[in-house]
Design a binder for these strands. Structure first.
Lengths: 231, 231
DNA sequence: ATATATTTTTGATCTGGCGCAATGTGCGCA
DNA sequence: TGCGCACATTGCGCCAGATCAAAAATATAT
């Protein structure tokens, strides 16, 4: 395995703050893995056999309903953590949306390592608490917002998260977004149909609030108006 | 503060597994507090100043939308943990649904204590991971299930969680449930209106799947049928 | 008990978003 | 350059669930 020294997410992932020695041990139990866009890493209901850090790429966490519908319950970016430590079953699938590069561990190995390194568990706890807050805010969107409000909130959220992914210090939202999602996936995130998403985007465009120069790119023209429509 | 020795949730809460010495230190930074049904402990957007263990009672975590609607994003039972350690702001309100009895800590005190006691942080991590799984399953319900499916899934979930709250060893679901919620609160959990909830329950009753002898009690007559309707 | 407030149920109507089908658009590839 | 495919948009009718209104059931106070 390539050394963590050169890892691009080294300072943002949960491994940040580990000593060189600790990093070395972690290095020994992990391995790199590439996943092509569209490929699944973990299936819903599988035994939770592995966990991973995302080095590059975007992945979705999703669950299907009996009647074939899908709900995306999480989106994972570089430096984020994937998987369910200290648990037996994975509740949802993990699928790459873009080509992705991961640092993968067997869950058992990772669990033992984590239990011996409180600093790592602490980082993981903070991340999990953040994810929980995020999931709960998302529940409000799914339970109570209109289609227009959902799409507006989604675009604003994306502009914060994808603004300029290369530049890590950049907390300021960006007006030009290159989405890693197709329309169907946006629908699966927002609990809507593809048609409804399409219509809402068309309306925002017609109202001069956004521009959508190509399929996956969005330009926010009037952020204030978009915010107003997000509820 | 009363000693942890006599605490009824002593073996289920995150304090389980602490040594007598550690328990003693924790004891010193916490205090007991009673909350009457309907009273709020934490408001949405507040500084996250305190965390707590639930000793007795049921509480809701909720967020309001600009236009006055509410979404309940979590329900907390005895032995569960409340609050947002290692964070500045509380994203949602915490309100007692029944009279409740808590073991409260200032967040700062708790944070420091937790950082010095990896075993405690580990318990907290496991709990948070469980809550995250639960929240994500709930997102599927909110995003993709019909009203009938939501109500059915809700009743089944309640039968698992409330079966016989006094008897902790009891993992088996119970057919008779005493809900700590009114109809409006069920609606706020499921992302529906009170009328829709009422109608779905009326239909299940008419179909002989459940019985609702009083406002807040439900008896599951045909669990298989209810499961089938939960999607 | 009786009166009043609160919650729930039921009924009638309306509508936002769904489902289907047709059309449009961009992209890879021969 | 044009063909074929996947994805996206648009139009249209419909229905699940929201909204509005009222009655009924239950709880609380006098």
């Amino acid at each position: 395995m390539r050394s963590c020294d050169v890892c691009v997410v080294r300072n943002r992932a949960i491994c940040a703050g580990l000593s060189p020695d600790e990093l070395d041990s972690l290095n020994r139990i992990g391995r790199h893995r590439n996943i092509a866009a569209g490929q699944a890493l973990i299936w819903e209901g599988d035994d939770a056999l592995l966990v991973a850090n995302v080095i590059e790429g975007v992945l979705k966490l999703s669950t299907g309903t009996r009647d074939g519908k899908e709900q995306i319950v999480g989106v994972v970016y570089p430096s984020d953590f994937i998987g369910r430590p200290f648990g037996q079953r994975s509740q949802h699938s993990v699928t790459a949306l873009t080509d992705a590069h991961l640092c993968v561990f067997s869950r058992n190995d990772f669990d033992s390592f984590a239990r011996e390194h409180p600093e790592l568990e602490h980082k993981l706890l903070q991340r999990t608490l953040d994810e929980l807050d995020r999931a709960r805010n998302w529940m409000v969107l799914l339970g109570r917002l209109s289609a227009a409000e959902r799409v507006a909130a989604f675009l604003l959220d994306m502009s914060e998260r994808l603004g300029n992914p290369a530049c890590e210090g950049n907390a300021a939202p960006h007006e030009s977004i290159e989405l890693p999602f197709g329309r169907q996936q946006i629908a699966d995130i927002l609990g809507l149909t593809i048609e409804t998403v399409s219509r809402q985007i068309a309306r925002f465009k017609a109202d001069g609030i956004i521009d959508a120069p190509s399929r996956r790119s969005i330009h926010i023209v009037d952020r204030a108006a978009l915010t107003a429509r997000a509820g």
